[in-house]
């Protein structure tokens, strides 16, 4: 599974992307976020408040209940501020 991070989420976790084996029991975006948070350090900071984090699965906006699998690309980022 490929993970991407943007803006302050990227800064807190200290990288812009990584490839991981799907954690056991992680079936949704929310599960994955909780697992990432449990890694501690910058991850714990980035995922401390899930109300402040948004996600996309395969480049489409996704909520915490969206399913994820080994072939997916999952991105985490703050609420967008374009325009």
């Amino acid at each position: 599974m490929k993970l991407l991070y943007f803006a302050w989420v990227r800064e807190k976790v200290g990288r812009s992307e990584e490839t991981i084996d799907v954690p056991q029991g992680a079936n949704t975006v929310g599960d994955l976020a909780l697992w990432l948070k449990s890694r501690g350090g910058g991850y714990a900071e980035a995922f401390a408040d899930m109300k402040r984090v948004r996600a996309a699965v395969n480049q489409e906006h996704a909520d915490l209940l969206a399913p994820v699998g080994a072939r997916d690309e999952v991105a985490f980022f703050p609420p967008v501020t374009g325009g």
């Binding site: 943007f6 803006a7 302050w8 906006h61 980022f77 703050p78 967008v80 501020t81 374009g82 325009g83």
Partner: peptide, 18 residues
């Protein structure tokens, strides 16, 4: 403004912030 994945970082006289 609510969908396109852009993030603004400002460099102001008082400092930098998202």
């Amino acid at each position: 403004k609510t969908k396109a994945p852009f993030w603004k970082r400002e460099m102001r006289e008082s400092g930098e912030h998202w």
